[in-house]
């Protein structure tokens, strides 16, 4: 089947039971997407499928045929960081960083749907992404800041 990840097409032989996250991490080497629970409880594996957030651990890879999958690696690289990545760094919205790719992808989905979220909307919209280090207050600030940065960039 053909899987499109971060704009790159991949032709892969995929067994029916294989999860999207297993393919991303094991076969494509895209280890930015993490597995922390493997059962849709923590959000660490959040990716975008056709722009909508999805738990890659609960998504069958085979079901993604024809869809566009976006992972943290596709969002922005070190030399060209996405506004969310910049804001996460600026606000120190991370500690161990294990949940960070999922947090950022969930935030990207939130901002795609709600470009100017209120603080309450951020808290509600991202409460499915757990952070055991407790970076939440700074994640909220980073997402609100990124929304402003993105808006400024659109206006410019």
């Amino acid at each position: 089947m053909r899987l499109t990840v971060n704009g790159q097409p991949y032709d892969l032989a995929i067994a029916g039971h294989e999860s999207l996250v297993a393919i991303l991490r094991g076969r494509l080497g895209l280890t930015g997407t993490k597995v922390a629970c493997g059962r849709g409880e923590c959000g660490a594996c959040t990716v975008l499928i056709d722009g909508k957030p999805a738990y890659a651990c609960l998504t069958l890879a085979a079901a993604c045929e024809g869809a566009a999958v976006s992972t943290i690696e596709g969002l922005g690289a070190a030399e060209r960081l996405h506004a969310l990545q910049q804001a996460f760094i600026a606000h120190d919205a991370l500690q161990c960083g294990f949940c960070t790719p999922g947090q950022i992808m969930a935030a990207a989905a939130l901002l795609a749907q709600t470009p100017r979220p209120t603080e309450a909307e951020v808290r509600h919209g991202m409460s499915g992404n757990l952070c055991r280090c407790g970076a939440y207050p700074k994640i909220v600030r980073a997402v609100l800041d990124a929304a402003q940065r993105l808006e400024a960039a659109r206006g410019a």
Binding site: L30, T31, G32, T33, K34, T71, I72, E73, L75, G76, A77, A78, L81, L84, Q85, F88, I89, A90, D92, L94, G97, F98, T100, P101, I104
Partner: peptide
């Protein structure tokens, strides 16, 4: 800023 933050926000950090 945290010196390994870029690695962590890009998915490049290897756990």
């Amino acid at each position: 800023p945290r010196m390994d933050a870029v690695e962590k926000v890009t998915g490049g950090a290897r756990y």
